[in-house]
């Protein structure tokens, strides 16, 4: 990175540290922070979408759909989330491959499950064994995003379901009295008003989502935990470094990263709550109305 790094014998102290922290591997480490942020930014809306669908299913008038919506939230909440992460990664992968297998190789006569193996025809493999490295990595990342969205969608569904029920009943009755259909009432009256009630739960969920991101490591994505272990360890899967075990320092750096991320979110969400309760007929809104003493 720096010109003085080319001569190793001249390095000491701060100069050495500057060179050490800008090696190619460390650049990959910094890149993985972006992976985590991208995951957060992609997952949050996806989980919200899943949650919205789940909440809509849970209050549907069609009984099986309502059962589905309720059991979706109940099961995901009753079981350790990490079990879901480990489960969905394999299950989703096999489901996709099985679907492609059915479409691409209709005349394949062997069973898909042979003892302890899961065998699909070579064309149905995901990603194809001939595809380049980045396709494999992106596919892994997408599976991880989908898994996060399913699990956090259940939590979001719970929050949104509660928020929908918190909207004052007479608002909905008034809408009905004006002759709005059920659908119109839902989209024009209920949905715009529910966000204020959902915000505390959703901001809690966002903090939880931040703290769940290191689990990416378990899903096989090369995230910050992966690189912290690789760079800090004196012996890793591929290399043995001349330095002793430095993983403690790398994990300390991760700790600081997460602490600042949660602290920052706390401040931003606090401001957002203040903004949203402005002019609302709640205690928070009422407090803002008064002139500061």
């Amino acid at each position: 990175m720096f010109s003085f790094c080319s001569d190793p014998s001249s390095l000491d102290g701060a100069k050495w540290l500057a060179c050490y922290l800008t090696t190619g591997k460390h650049m990959a480490f910094y890149g993985s922070f972006i992976t985590v942020m991208v995951l957060l930014l992609v997952t949050a809306p996806a989980a919200l979408l899943f949650g919205f669908a789940g909440a809509m299913a849970a209050r549907s008038r069609f009984l099986p759909l309502r059962w589905f919506g309720k059991s979706y939230t109940a099961i995901v909440r009753g079981v350790p989330d990490i079990a879901f992460f480990l489960f969905f990664v394999i299950a989703l992968d096999q489901a996709f491959e099985y679907l492609r297998h059915k479409i691409k190789c209709p005349d394949w006569d062997m069973p898909v499950r042979q003892g302890n193996d899961f065998v699909v025809c070579p064309q149905a493999k995901l990603p194809l064994s001939s595809s380049p490295q980045w396709v494999h990595e992106t596919y892994g990342f997408l599976i991880a995003v989908l898994t996060f969205a399913i699990v956090f969608g259940a939590f979001a569904a719970n929050v949104l379901y509660g928020a929908m029920r918190a909207v004052p009943k007479n608002q909905l009755e008034t809408a009905e009295a004006y002759g709005m259909s059920r659908r119109q009432t839902f989209w024009r009256i209920l949905v715009p008003q529910m966000w204020l009630y959902a915000l505390p739960g959703l901001s809690n969920l966002w903090m939880i989502l931040i703290k769940a991101t290191p689990l990416l490591f378990l899903l096989g994505v090369e995230d910050i935990v992966y690189w912290a272990r690789e760079l800090g360890g004196s012996k890793t899967s591929a290399y043995s470094y001349p330095h002793p075990d430095w993983r403690l320092w790398y994990f300390l750096a991760l700790l600081v990263f997460y602490l600042s991320l949660t602290r920052l979110s706390e401040i931003v969400l606090g401001r957002l709550t203040k903004r949203l309760s402005h002019g609302q007929a709640t205690i928070g809104g009422e407090r803002q109305r008064r002139a500061p003493a």
Partner: peptide
Amino acid sequence: FLFRGSPLFIQFFLFYEAFV
């Protein structure tokens, strides 16, 4: 703040390395 603001997963790693 320290224990609520950081992931339990990272805390496990950190303490394990420290104990080693």
